[in-house]
């Protein structure tokens, strides 16, 4: 980097001005899968949280990942989002994007959104404002000070509100929403950034049966446009949404297939379902 570029970058960092970062390059999914995890191993003090994990997620797919506690589900999410670095193996987003060479914000920018277990919305902002904050686009001080939300962004907010079915609460404070509604709002905030791959960690924990049902509809409606990976313990919920289920055990894939195949799979029954 020459001096002029260095100064300009420094200036932009401090003053928050300058051209917005370009849209992330398109993710090449021409061979089918959008996510390639190959031979990923992560160990913590000798304990192998992931042990030569190999997993592929197809573009537009809705995949459920199940497994007993300590099977490595959360660690896998951490590796994909850049929070944890694997000891060996490779992780690619599409054909051309190497996730292991990127930082957390870069990965988020490239189009991988993650919803954490505990909902964290801005409780003192309205539902609309929460989505507005999360909208993709220029986020410098001057842009937000001088320009209101563009018409297309506004339309996107409306369409996301419709998707997550919170139109009626758009002017309500997010803090006044129910637990389930907060979860949906958070999914909505992810959608505002238009991610290609959504990682959803235990979306129905603590929800009422009606909320669980609506969450299932929501996630099903997202598949196709987005690739969705759901980690969940609730087997009834998994059964209601999953076409394809991956069972993790001791840091690697034990079996993969439909939920019925999994429930009759002898090894799976032994380690997990037979409990």
């Amino acid at each position: 980097m020459n001096a002029a570029t260095a100064i300009r970058n420094g200036w932009q960092k401090v003053f928050g001005t300058g051209a917005r970062s370009e849209r992330p390059p398109a993710i090449d999914t021409s061979h089918g899968p959008i996510l390639y995890l190959e031979d990923i191993t992560v160990s913590f003090d000798g304990f192998k949280a992931l042990n030569a994990l190999t997993l592929y997620i197809d573009a537009g797919e809705l995949r459920c990942i199940i497994g007993p506690n300590g099977a490595g589900k959360t660690t896998m999410m951490d590796v994909i989002t850049g929070k944890t670095r694997p000891d060996c193996g490779s992780a690619w987003f599409g054909q051309t994007t190497d996730l292991l060479a990127m930082t957390e914000p870069e990965i988020a920018q490239a189009g991988i959104g993650r919803k954490f277990q505990k909902p964290t919305v801005f409780e003192h902002h309205t539902v609309f404002q929460n989505l507005e904050l999360a909208a993709a686009g220029e986020k410098s001080v001057w842009a937000t000070l001088l320009k209101p939300l563009s018409a297309t962004q506004r339309e996107l907010v409306d369409s996301v509100l419709e998707t997550i079915r919170l139109q009626d609460t758009r002017s309500m404070l997010a803090g006044a929403l129910s637990h389930g509604q907060k979860q949906w709002l958070e999914i909505g905030m992810l959608l505002m950034q238009d991610p290609q791959l959504l990682l959803v960690d235990e979306p129905v924990a603590g929800m009422t049966p009606q909320e669980v049902e609506r969450t299932a509809e929501l996630l099903l409606s997202l598949a196709g446009k987005h690739s969705v990976v759901v980690v969940e313990h609730d087997m009834a919920f998994v059964r209601s949404i999953a076409k394809k289920v991956t069972v993790l055990h001791e840091g690697h894939v034990l079996a993969e297939g439909t939920i019925d195949e999994m429930q009759s799979h002898p090894r799976v029954v032994e380690v997990y379902l037979g409990e």
């Binding site: 003192h124 902002h125 507005e132 904050l133 986020k139 001080v141 937000t144 000070l145 209101p148 939300l149």
Partner: peptide
Amino acid sequence: SRAGRVIQA
């Protein structure tokens, strides 16, 4: 402004 909502966030 939107910036105001960001600073409150």
